[in-house]
């Protein structure tokens, strides 16, 4: 009975140890996979959210005039 009980206790300790290792591996693996996937999301998704366009409407050239009329002077008209 003593031997059997010790055997069961040793065996149980072994199972607990293996289960603990499995839990650690599973949690670590799943965490790594999920984080890896999430990092793909953050790297690849570059949303173009805001587009700002500045439009400059150009008007036509402006123009101004300078003018005068030069007449023949009376004296010149008299000579002619």
């Amino acid at each position: 009975m003593v031997k059997r009980g010790k055997f069961n206790q040793d065996y149980s300790n072994k199972i607990v140890f293996i289960l603990t290792i499995m839990v650690i591996l599973i949690v670590a693996t799943s965490t790594w996979v999920v984080l890896n996937k999430l990092s793909d999301v953050s790297v690849n998704s570059q949303p173009k959210v805001v587009s700002i366009t500045k439009i400059i409407e150009e008007g036509a050239p402006a123009g101004g005039a300078v003018g005068l009329t030069i007449l023949q002077s009376p004296k010149e008209e008299g000579i002619e």
Partner: peptide, 19 residues
């Protein structure tokens, strides 16, 4: 998406255009 257009005027004028 958000699109924003800003329109501005580039306009000159001879207010007095005849001398």
């Amino acid at each position: 998406s958000v699109n924003l257009s800003i329109t501005s005027q580039l306009q000159i004028n001879f207010t007095l255009d005849n001398s």
